[in-house]
Design a binder for these strands. Sequence first.
RNA 1: CGGGGUGUAGCGCAGCCCGGUAGCGCGCUUGCUUUGGGAGCAAGAUGUCGAGAGUUCGAAUCCCUCCACCCCGACCA
Length: 574
Amino acid sequence: MRASQFFIATLKEAPSDAEIVSHQLMLRAGLIKRLAGGIYSWMPMGLRVLRKVEAVVREEMDSAGAVELLMPAVIPAELWQETSRWEKYGPELLRLKDRHQRDFVIGPTHEEVVTDIARREIRSYRQLPRHFYQIQTKFRDEIRPRFGVMRGREFLMKDGYSFHASYADLEREYCNMHDTYSRIFSRLGLGFRAVAADTGSIGGTGSHEFHVLADSGEDAIAFCPDSDYAANIELAEAVAPASERDLSTLAMTKVATPNRTRCEDVAIFLGVSIQQTVKAIAVMHEADGRRDFALLLVRGDHTLNEIKAAKLPGLDPFRFASDAEVEEFLGCKPGYIGPVGVGANVRVIADRTVAVMANFVCGANEEGFHLTGVNWGRDIGEPSLVADIRNVVAGDPSPDGKGTLQLCRGIEVGHIFQLRTKYSEAMKCTFLNDQGQPQVMEMGCYGIGVSRIVGAAIEQNFDDRGICWPVAMAPFAVVIVPMGYAKSDAVRTAADELHANLAKAGVDVVLDNRDERPGVMFADWELVGVPHRVVVGERGLKEGKFEYKGRRDSEATMVPAAEILEFLQQRVCA
RNA sequence: CGGGGUGUAGCGCAGCCCGGUAGCGCGCUUGCUUUGGGAGCAAGAUGUCGAGAGUUCGAAUCCCUCCACCCCGACCA
């Protein structure tokens, strides 16, 4: 490729709305252009990167035994109604009508379509298992798109769906995909971790997420440095404290705590540690016209895990109670509420940690007052339910008992699910088993955020000059930068020849024949992040040498002209 | 949806408080010089000042409405 025939659109300054480094660099390097919130054009340079990622994903999926197809982006509503997701999915699902006023959706995911294909095409156990995948543009009308392609509304996704005659076979494929994903992210040169995850609205049982580790990640991950345990904080279990509840030694006392509504402030005001305080969160569960009010208790320094709480019996789903509802049930404004003396219509649900606390501090259900020295059993009855409802914090014991947890942040780039029969049952996706009996297929579902990977990779690979692509996803593997391409016949001849030879050898090479000033060319290619650079100049040619510099190298090295081809090939393949 | 903020040239910004018909840097065009790290000099082009309505002799500036975008929150594969 010659730069003059390509399209290079670099920017010295990043547009001001780009918040994180990958977004800024993608805009500055001219990889993407924003068209609307969360909607981007992939410019030629960016598209090359995207295609590289796609190629790796496709190769590994194919060799893992999956088979590619391409499903429509526009899907008739009837399919979504069959699984009730038409009602359940919410405003994230982009709906539209055609000229006949028929309802359609722009697919955010394709369980319905692929299940429809499977139920029409697959009749016998002899045709199973089967794994279909596609690499396709998806649309999700995110509440808040941000970070460029990391959380776009339109994005490129690899989504695969497997169909099985038995759960055991689904488990086998799930492991196969776990391995395949690990290979894909390794080949792409990413630092990643597979973590146990919540299944979210897709539903199903087992699930793992693959996270690229980066401080800018939107997800928190709990992991154990001494074992393989890793889980999304949404799911990570806060194990029950090993210790017994302390003895009640203090008398319950009402104390004035004017204008102290946060545990932190109350603790400082009363001169106790925040670990002695209990935070009460008022929630409401509505079903069949009834309203059930509940108080969720976590220790003052802990935070509520809404996903865990939403799984508790009688709370699925819940919402936070309004200030008016808090007054209605407790006779007190938020900020001073607590479990002591509440009516029988208030359910008290305590986190495991809270359940073993003694002599603690909590709201008095009277504005401006808290209670100290509160004890279970003596001052209030035992909680109606003790459960794990908090987020783990660094230093908590690992659920596998092999050390303590640490926290880090990650960008979710892959997610694998065991869907089981959630969709196949709703859509009557059956086959005849070896007994000749109809049976519902077991399903798995496996996603990779292809466009998100591009952003995630940059978050892990950049310096003050720009992007430092892993070779596998670089737009070009090698750039040839000639010094005085228009002026010097010797330089032009040598650069052209090297370019031709590299291209012939199958190396993804670009020759910068724009005849820009050296500084401009250097800066552009460092910003774009091409991993290998060869400078062709009269200075070197006189000695019969080229100058090589890796994107992350601090110094350039001189390479004899006769060896340059092999030298580069070695590095590109490494 | 709630809170905050921003919309002025391709990009980054000033001007707005205190109304008088728009400017800076980068980029772009042309010429000359320069040519191993984002060149120098000279000449130039580029704006419905986000949109609409209003106040005023006069609006980028003041008032109102709307739109878009960004941040925080809620929400979310």
